[in-house]
Amino acid sequence: MDLTTRKSVSSQTLREQSRGDRPVRRSLFRRFLRWGGFGFIILVAIVFGGFLHFADSITTLKPPPEPKADAIVVLTGGYQRIGQAVELLRTGAGNRLLISGVHPTTTPSQIRRLTQSPVSLFNCCVDVGYDALDTIGNAREAAKWIHARGYKSILVVTNNYHMPRSLAELKYVDPATDFIPYPVVNSDLKTTNWFTDPNALRTMLSEYAKVLLAGARNLTGLGRPLGLRSRETDDDPD
């Protein structure tokens, strides 16, 4: 066999091998796309199912019929929450109240007037926390207050849609304390057809996304901000 014939045979062999490899590569690529598509559909189904479970738990969440704890913590975000917390304090559901995450320009007197609370009640039994910037900060600020006073059980007052994330952050920072949810029902979520209201649906979707993010953050311990105006904290397990 001369040199020209050898080259021709070698070229033909390489072309045949190349053609043989192409179906294998295409098959692997198609298989990857197929399983990737299945995985994406399953992931979407899990996330959607989780949202339905989250929404159902929120809309059916109710306060305990006879709330009682050592103290009360309310997470700011509306005077409806604070008013409910002050009322719980007045009726003896807790011995003391922390209003966490108050803006620095807001005074206790302003809060007292807006909630129409007695001066004596505020002077004896209400503490105003100015350090928290967000829900993580609320948890850290509340844990510091709880430990300083030796409380074992706490009524947590916040909106119903905000309650799962609030409890998750509180338990992450302070797993030893018994946190009892006292949800304040958001007016947009009182009807059974809240999902047809764009504002209510937007609120629920946004909060569900935050719950997923908080769960991943607490599980991994990564990307967890301080959440406080000050830089001092000694209650984080990180």
Rank of each mutant, 00 (worst) to 15 (best):
D127Y: 07
D127M: 11
Y130P: 07
D131R: 12
D131C: 06
A132K: 10
A132P: 01
A132D: 03
L133G: 03
L133K: 05
D134W: 01
D134M: 07
D134G: 10
T135P: 02
T135N: 02
G137W: 01
G137A: 09
G137T: 05
N138I: 01
N138K: 08
A139Q: 03
A139I: 09
E141P: 08
E141F: 09
A142F: 05
A142W: 08
A143E: 09
A143R: 04
W145M: 07
A148G: 00
R149I: 10
G150V: 02
G150A: 01
Y151K: 07
Y151H: 11
K152I: 01
K152M: 04
S153C: 08
S153H: 09
V156D: 10
V156C: 09
V156S: 08
V157K: 10
V157Q: 12
V157G: 13
T158C: 14
N159K: 05
N159S: 15
N159M: 11
Y161M: 14
H162E: 15
H162K: 11
H162S: 13
R165K: 13
R165T: 12
S166Y: 00
S166M: 02
L167D: 05
A168W: 11
E169Q: 12
E169A: 14
L170W: 01
L170P: 08
L170N: 04
K171V: 02
K171P: 02
K171M: 06
Y172A: 13
V173K: 00
V173D: 00
V173F: 00
D174E: 10
P175M: 03
P175R: 02
P175Y: 02
A176G: 00
A176T: 10
T177W: 00
D178A: 10
D178M: 08
D178P: 00
F179T: 04
F179K: 03
I180A: 09
P183D: 05
V184W: 13
V185W: 02
V185N: 06
S187G: 02
S187A: 14
K190V: 15
K190E: 14
T191G: 06
T191Y: 00
T191E: 13
W194S: 05
W194E: 08
F195A: 08
D197V: 09
P198K: 07
N199V: 09
N199D: 09
A200Q: 06
L201H: 02
T203C: 03
T203F: 15
T203M: 15
M204S: 07
M204L: 14
L205I: 14
L205Q: 13
S206W: 13
Y208P: 12
A209N: 08
A209T: 15
K210E: 13
K210F: 03
K210N: 14
V211T: 14
L212M: 15
